[in-house]
């Protein structure tokens, strides 16, 4: 009695064929019919394919349905294919990113290795003429404190405030450009260096400005322009560093 309501799995193609052709034992047939009472999929499949069997088309229709598997497979493969394509695209992207990172790293490494912020000439002036150069210029004093501590970002607003009050202070412009470079704002730094190139401020030379401009260009990864400037520095006090940088960049 307990086996009366025994569950079984759905009909395989072979079982379906055998059942429709009456080629099962009584026990097998009963088990299948019992399953058909519970399973709408198998019951409807039996009903549907009974017609095909009656019309002598069962084999043909089953084989055509089986052939569908290839079509469905193609769809599945397409999805897998798309996965592979996505994976390949990711790999290419990753390689490109690594290449970019390495290129960026080279520029970044060279910049960090060769950049050293220009010393403030005010200090030299202050030691020669104590009290005069910085007297009453609180913003400049604060800017220089930060600047000398390497806190370039913090020095920027103070340089700006100082320059609003003393717009003719070219040295402050030069240090501001250095601070911008130190804070990795190389584009703005380059802009200031280019302006100062025409008329270098007291205490610095055209070579100094060219050197820092070259570093700003390296930081921006503008290798061609940087190389040109470094070439121009080959007969200057920066010749040795410029040569090293050129070799490293080339």
């Amino acid at each position: 009695m307990k086996t009366t309501f025994k569950e079984r799995s759905c009909l395989s193609q072979r079982e379906l064929r055998q059942y429709l052709r009456g080629k099962m034992t009584k026990q097998q047939q009963h088990a299948v019919e019992h399953h058909l009472l519970d399973c709408p999929l198998c019951a409807h499949a039996v009903d549907g394919l009974e017609k095909a069997e009656a019309a002598g088309q069962l084999e043909q229709e089953l084989s055509e349905a089986g052939a569908l598997s290839k079509r469905a497979g193609r769809k599945v493969y397409r999805r897998t294919w798309m996965n592979w394509a996505a994976a390949a695209a990711l790999i290419v992207l990753a390689l490109f990113s690594v290449w970019q990172y390495r290129a960026a790293t080279v520029h970044e490494r060279l910049f960090v290795e060769y950049f050293s912020a220009a010393p403030p000439n005010y200090l030299a002036l202050r030691s020669a003429q104590p009290g005069n150069a910085l007297e009453g210029k609180e913003e400049l004093q604060k800017a220089l404190e930060f600047y000398q501590d390497g806190a370039f970002e913090a020095s920027l607003p103070h340089f700006s405030l100082h320059l609003e009050a003393y717009p003719e202070d070219d040295q402050a412009y030069f240090l501001l450009a250095n601070a911008l470079l130190g804070a990795r704002r190389s584009e703005r730094a380059a802009h200031f260096f280019r302006q100062l190139q025409e008329d270098p401020p007291a205490g610095s030379t055209a070579e100094d400005i060219r050197w820092y401009l070259a570093l700003a260009l390296i930081e921006q990864e503008d290798t061609t322009a940087a190389l040109q400037l470094l070439q121009e520095l080959s007969a200057s006090s920066y010749s040795e560093q410029a040569l090293e940088l050129r070799q490293a960049l080339e």
Partner: peptide
């Protein structure tokens, strides 16, 4: 796990039944 072979097995297990059920209608 996006295991295509598992889907293929399910497909082979049921394609004739799905076809048969559609054939009824």
């Amino acid at each position: 796990e996006d295991d295509r072979r598992s889907f293929d097995v399910l497909y082979d297990r049921y394609v004739h039944l799905v076809y048969g059920a559609c054939r009824k209608y």
